[in-house]
Amino acid sequence: MQFDTVAEALNMAGHGAYVWSVYGVSLVAVTVLLLGPVLRSRRLQRQQLALLRSELARQQRASQSNAEGEE
């Protein structure tokens, strides 16, 4: 370990603001790169499921009204 205290590690002899801000932005970038597509996939799957369910409900309604018509 190159630093004795947390304050020293944060300050980095005056360069702390530069170094830590870059690592902060990198953390955000990595999160976006890994989580962004996962959230997109989930949203697409949810949309598809909603579409399938409404299709299924429509089919059920249609078959019900057909059955009632026959009676």
């Binding site: 980095m12 002899a13 005056g14 360069h15 530069y18 170094v19």
Partner: peptide, 8 residues
């Protein structure tokens, strides 16, 4: 020469 800034 660059101190800690090189950690970037």
């Amino acid at each position: 020469r660059q101190g800690n800034s090189y950690r970037i």
